[in-house]
Design a protein around this nucleic acid. Structure first.
Lengths: 238, 238
DNA sequence: AAACTAGAAGTTGTCAGACAACTACGCCAA
DNA sequence: TTGGCGTAGTTGTCTGACAACTTCTAGTTT
């Protein structure tokens, strides 16, 4: 549908790669270009993008090969930011949200530095507990300027994911930087997750950036180990 | 030095992007191609690769812009696999290794499934404690088939990093899949790290793959929170 | 003077065709 | 059987061109 060959091409190529068994060779570039209705130069740019992502491998004189079943891995991985709700839905899991709290408050020093705004700036804070099988598995806190998300912007059926809301609204989000660590639950978190204070938790502290590299949101996530399996694909450093 | 335009180009372009302030425009494609001594088509392939990595952004009719100070972030991040020793060196930190233990043992069920080999296969296990300021900060265990790394392959001055050794040897390593979680220290780990059993630890369980997607090594890493700051750059899911 | 419009210049997006470098495979000869 | 060689097929790179888009300027209109 798109009039932009490269974008359409990326979709088509991704589909082709996804349905091609690992290790198998793709059609030759001239042929693929003809099939997909683009020039070889454009096709090669797209292939270079996929090669950079490690999905295919090209060997001069031999051909282009799809590299592996990374697909399923990547999707569950941390390379792509998506809400827990979206992730759970994709994995066919049943999750529910409880203790949803949306409130406005002025920025304290921590929030001010994390968001790059002056102290006292009006903020919106969203907190929620995610449950699987009725048991708490994650406690999530999002904090962002009221200018970006006002309490009253939220629909009545808001299910808790700030990320999903911003995406639906069309905000130009780009990347998230997540700091990963392990901590013992504080009193507040322990209460929300129905665990003992000091129990082991996986902790993400992350900032969300828009396409101009401005900080849109920062969030604190606390996961009870064992329910979600987070993984990362890492490239070997040259 | 390289006779392969694309590889040389990637290095040159990376350098150019690195030393260009964030937000600034790069020279136009025809000019850059001339400067770097390649055709515009080849240049564009390289730029597409960098664009995929999120380092630059191109706008038709306007120009190509470097995107941000991601550079410093990425380097400390988890996208690229490198040994703790290499990381520390790059960051100018002083770390030492103690309790280095290298031994051979047959594969138990866990190791067999993790490495994709039959139970009983001869394995090599490398364990070590990494210290900063004399205090333990990480406990690392690498396990891999003896066929890939035999105890006697190791030099007398082996400093503990299996990854560095394999890389120096020229093994064709490609990616690592790291599962990240939080756990309480077991007796063995607690003893090595001089902490209480059950104390909070950040835990990586990772598999190392070669370019044919074969499992080369799997490792267990335990980090005392606060010393290393691991972070991940995530793209917002479409 | 201010605001709007048309155009020109510059930039990225895409295309077509060609040749070079390399690989895989089969054929032929020893 | 084995070794070498040539040929077809594939990716790597280059050249030149045109289309689509953005930005800025200069002129025109209000």
């Amino acid at each position: 549908m798109s009039n932009f060959p490269f974008q359409r091409l990326q979709v088509d190529l991704a589909a082709l790669i996804a349905r091609t068994p690992a290790g198998q060779r793709l059609p030759s570039e001239p042929e693929l270009a003809k099939q997909l209705g683009v020039s070889r130069a454009t096709l090669r740019e797209a292939m270079r993008a996929f090669e950079t992502q490690g999905l295919i491998r090209r060997r001069q004189g031999s051909g282009t090969f799809v590299v592996g079943k990374m697909r399923g891995l990547l999707d569950n991985g941390l390379e792509v930011l998506e809400s827990l709700e979206t992730m759970a839905k994709r994995l066919g899991l049943e999750v529910s949200v409880s203790d949803l709290s949306v409130e406005s408050l002025p920025a304290d020093d921590d929030a001010a530095t994390a968001l790059g705004v002056p102290s006292g700036t009006p903020l919106t804070r969203v907190r929620r507990v995610v449950r699987a099988d009725g048991r708490p598995v994650a406690y999530l806190v999002d904090i962002l300027p009221e200018a970006i998300l006002h309490v009253e912007d939220l629909p009545v059926d808001f299910h808790g994911s700030v990320l999903d809301f911003l995406l639906d609204r069309g905000d130009p989000l780009r990347t998230s930087r997540a700091n990963v660590s392990a901590i013992g639950g504080t009193a507040e978190v322990a209460k929300a997750l129905e665990i003992q204070r000091g129990d082991v938790l996986l902790h993400f502290y992350s900032q969300l950036f828009d396409e101009e590299n401005r900080i849109v949101d920062y969030s604190l996530s606390y996961f009870i180990p064992g329910y979600f399996h987070f993984h990362i694909m890492r490239r070997v450093g040259a």
